[in-house]
């Protein structure tokens, strides 16, 4: 049985009197990952900040954790978070092992055994190395290991593959899937690799301020994505990296209202080039 871990109802969030998120509802169960996509400025990072308690939600918003209404999710027992921007004060050194162990500090629940994590993430060769001396990909993997070590039911990942090349990216996404299925995590991932998310996540949440939909990822059509980004899906795939460059990148505007789409056209995973006419019919 897959239990519901998190249910969000009517989530709204305002920033300087402007609504950044408007009336968002979705739920997340065990062994499920939700991939969050949407143009820059569409509210993806805001969603993370609200979920982690770094930003306040509006009064009408409701969070249910394991079917209990909660004011806030508790970082000591409910969720772990990998933020997009990281900085470290590396005036003294910490070995990779010491770094991963920091994940246990302040934790109210029982963490996963450290040996198990080291095995799954294949970190045994790095353990004694200084964390600050690692390559970008290795650092990202170690930070991800620390997040999963905490064994909280919910895992929030903001751009876990930022700056990684194709191979390292695939490897990391695969590890996330393994962890999800072996330890019953419910995961929310923000990423600009739309194709990877559609391939690996059970559900997709597309955010553009007031517009969103939420459906099994098999049903996501390139039409829907185009609707949100207002440009060709192929173009988006090509310019994937550009989307990560900030709000100045193109494809950020979406002012039109649109309904929840229930088109059930299956996305052909290999045929992302399928043309629009085929799908409309």
């Amino acid at each position: 049985m897959n239990g519901t871990l998190l249910k969000i109802e009517n989530l709204s969030c305002s920033f300087n009197e402007e609504k950044v998120l408007d009336n968002i509802s979705f739920s997340l169960s065990e062994k499920i990952s939700i991939g969050v996509i949407g143009p820059n400025g569409g509210g993806k990072s805001t969603l993370m900040n609200v979920l982690t308690g770094n930003l306040n939600k509006n009064n009408e918003s409701k969070f249910y954790f394991k079917n209990n209404l909660v004011k806030k999710l508790d970082p000591r027992s409910d969720f772990s978070y990998l933020p997009q921007e990281k900085y470290f004060n590396t005036y003294f050194g910490l070995s990779v092992l010491e770094f991963i162990k920091m994940g246990q500090i302040g934790l109210k629940i029982k963490p996963i055994k450290i040996d198990e994590i080291i095995d799954i993430f294949d970190l045994s060769k790095l353990l004694k190395k200084d964390f600050s001396q690692l390559s970008g990909g290795q650092k990202q993997k170690v930070m991800l290991a620390r997040v999963f070590l905490r064994n909280t039911p919910l895992i929030f990942l903001d751009e876990p593959t930022l700056g990684l090349d194709g191979k390292a990216n695939d490897q990391l996404i695969q590890i996330i899937s393994i962890m999800k299925n072996s330890f019953n995590f419910g995961i929310i991932i923000i990423d600009h690799h739309i194709d990877t998310l559609i391939e690996h996540c059970e559900q997709i949440l597309c955010l553009n301020k007031n517009a969103h939909w939420h459906s099994p990822s098999e049903k996501v059509t390139s039409d829907q994505i185009q609707h949100f980004y207002h440009c060709e899906y192929e173009h988006l795939l090509v310019h994937n990296h550009q989307l990560a460059t900030g709000t100045k990148a193109p494809h950020t505007e979406c002012s039109t209202e649109h309904s929840h789409d229930d088109t059930t056209v299956t996305l052909d995973k290999s045929g992302l080039n399928k043309n629009k006419k085929d799908k409309l019919q």
Partner: peptide, 18 residues
Amino acid sequence: KYWIFISYDPQSAKNQGI
């Protein structure tokens, strides 16, 4: 260990509820 964590990685310390 708290002082080490907060000195080295204050952002994650905050995210872990410290």
